[in-house]
Amino acid sequence: MQLVAGILLLAAILALSEWLKISASLAVPAPVLAIVLLVIILLMRGAVPTGLRRVSAVLLRHMALFFIPALVAMVGLLDVLQENIWPLLLIIIVSTVVPLWLTAFIFDRLAPGLDDEGRQ
């Protein structure tokens, strides 16, 4: 029952966010809005309900599974990709490596140290 309640809570928050986004024509995407709502609800409640904790643990651990259809949909894009493959690949490589390193580097320099459990 707790698990079902957890799923229903997530679904209700997401549906509410989708409705809010449409009715107030917000620029924020519904899932992002939903994350904010969930954090606010948890802050007000002061704890994570057991069911929600278990459901979210499973959903988060297998998030990659839910991305598979988006990747498979690229099958319809093969033509456009093929035409521009080398410039696109080059751009993707550089514009992934640079921000990945730069973001981590800047934070690493600026942030106050973390207790030992935060280091690998």
């Binding site: 899932p31 969930l38 994570v48 929600l52 979210s56």
Partner: peptide, 15 residues
């Protein structure tokens, strides 16, 4: 389900 799983990110953020 990806939508629900995205919302779940709120839990570790809260923690």
């Amino acid at each position: 389900i990806l939508g629900l799983s995205t919302v779940s990110i709120g839990v570790p953020i809260y923690d």
